[in-house]
């Protein structure tokens, strides 16, 4: 039995446990700023967007952040490390309310709420961005990876700058 079949046949409880572990690992990777490991959660041909909810609701395509493929994610990581100027900060991501919508072909559709808390050195921690992950995962090399990850955010007025991934 292939890994993909194993996932498809998994009962709901097992699958949920797998996903909760995956999302915890994803958030942990970013919270710990292991950005170089972040693209490994995605497929080579992935789409990653951080997009305001108002654009989604109006059918407008513009994303605040739009990366294509693992290479596009890697470019962002290089920019974070090497080219972009920003104040030091911690960002912590809380993922909750995971909903497994089911398999659509070879892709598993999943939604979850997320909350990103930002801490700057001279300021108390604040809610930086809150929204919903709208994800499609596929099995590649024996594990579930994001083929598409949309971070659709409610927090339309972004507090200054969005530097780290969500």
């Amino acid at each position: 039995m292939s890994a993909a079949e194993r996932y498809v046949r998994m009962n709901a409880r097992e699958l949920r446990l797998e996903l909760e572990e995956l999302y915890a690992a994803y958030a942990g990777c970013l919270d710990e700023e292991r950005f170089e490991d972040w693209p490994e959660f995605f497929t080579d041909d992935c789409t990653y967007k951080i997009i305001p909810r108002e654009n989604v609701e109006r059918g407008l395509p513009l994303a605040t952040w739009f990366s294509e493929g693992k290479n596009g994610l890697r470019d962002r990581v290089v920019a974070i490390r090497k080219t972009m100027l920003y104040a030091p900060r911690y960002v912590r991501r809380l993922v909750s309310g995971l909903r497994v919508l089911g398999w659509e072909g070879d892709a598993l559709a999943v939604r979850a709420s997320y909350l990103a808390l930002e801490t700057l050195l001279d300021e108390p921690t604040r809610v930086f961005n809150c929204g919903e992950y709208r994800d499609r995962l596929v099995v590649v090399d024996d594990r579930l990876r994001f083929r598409e990850k949309l971070c659709v955010f409610d927090s339309l007025l972004v507090p200054n700058s969005l530097i780290f991934p969500l």
Partner: peptide, 24 residues
């Protein structure tokens, strides 16, 4: 246009430098 928009806005490769430095 949508790809190059990555340069600009709150997460822009370029303009995020500006919003950060304006705060400074």
């Amino acid at each position: 246009r949508l790809r190059q928009a990555n340069l600009m806005g709150p997460a822009g490769y370029v303009s995020a430098d500006d919003s950060e430095v304006m705060k400074f």
